[in-house]
Simulated assay, not measured.
Amino acid sequence: MIYLDDLEVGTETYFGSCEVDRDEVIEFARRYDPQPFHLSDEAAAKTHFGRLAASGWHSCAMVMGVIARKVVETEQAGLGSPGIDELRWLKPVYPGDTLHVSSKIVEVRPSRSKPEIGSIRSATTVTNQDGVPVLTFTSIVLMRRRPV
């Protein structure tokens, strides 16, 4: 099990990757972000996207899937997240892209009021198959401390 006490500022982690599937892009958009450039090649061609683009929220959901699978696989003592900061969609994400997710720990902080837990802040970067950053954010994760 990986606890808060095992983590250090500067530690970098590669979480993995995922393929962006056209049918999933359209289905997500139909349900959660029904803007024309997420639903139709023709509508997207009339925008700065130039072609069908994934919703930024879908991109975030795909990234969360990559991160969550790695956290479960490596048995981290995570307790969820109170949120994220500085979310930026830098470039469009298109069907056929491969997203790669990595992060760098920028803060490890034991809780002052609850000594059994603490939090980390990580700068997360998502790149496409060409190494171009498409999404960045700072995540905040609550974690258990190593039992005494």
Rank of each mutant, 00 (worst) to 15 (best):
residue 112 R to K: 15
residue 84 I to H: 09
residue 123 A to F: 15
residue 88 R to A: 12
residue 101 V to E: 02
residue 95 P to I: 00
residue 97 D to M: 04
residue 53 A to M: 06
residue 49 F to M: 14
residue 119 S to W: 12
residue 105 I to E: 09
residue 118 G to V: 05
residue 66 V to R: 07
residue 40 S to Y: 04
residue 140 I to M: 10
residue 75 E to L: 10
residue 100 H to S: 11
residue 34 P to C: 01
residue 99 L to H: 00
residue 92 P to E: 05
residue 147 P to L: 07
residue 130 D to E: 15
residue 64 M to D: 03
residue 11 T to V: 08
residue 102 S to Q: 12
residue 126 V to T: 08
residue 44 A to C: 05
residue 93 V to Q: 04
residue 133 P to E: 04
residue 24 E to C: 06
residue 12 E to Y: 03
residue 42 E to A: 13
residue 80 G to Q: 12
residue 64 M to I: 08
residue 6 D to E: 06
residue 21 D to K: 14
residue 29 A to I: 01
residue 96 G to W: 03
residue 20 V to I: 09
residue 48 H to P: 02
residue 124 T to R: 12
residue 126 V to I: 11
residue 110 P to I: 01
residue 136 T to W: 06
residue 113 S to Q: 10
residue 35 Q to T: 08
residue 71 V to T: 14
residue 76 Q to N: 12
residue 12 E to T: 11
residue 93 V to S: 03
residue 138 T to L: 08
residue 119 S to L: 12
residue 67 I to N: 00
residue 107 E to A: 14
residue 44 A to D: 04
residue 113 S to Y: 06
residue 66 V to P: 00
residue 60 C to Q: 05
residue 98 T to P: 10
residue 109 R to T: 10
residue 20 V to K: 00
residue 90 L to D: 01
residue 71 V to G: 04
residue 43 A to T: 07
residue 102 S to L: 06
residue 139 S to G: 12
residue 23 D to E: 11
residue 17 S to A: 15
residue 13 T to G: 02
residue 137 F to P: 09
residue 76 Q to F: 11
residue 34 P to Q: 04
residue 72 V to F: 10
residue 127 T to R: 08
residue 99 L to P: 00
residue 17 S to D: 11
residue 131 G to Y: 05
residue 139 S to V: 10
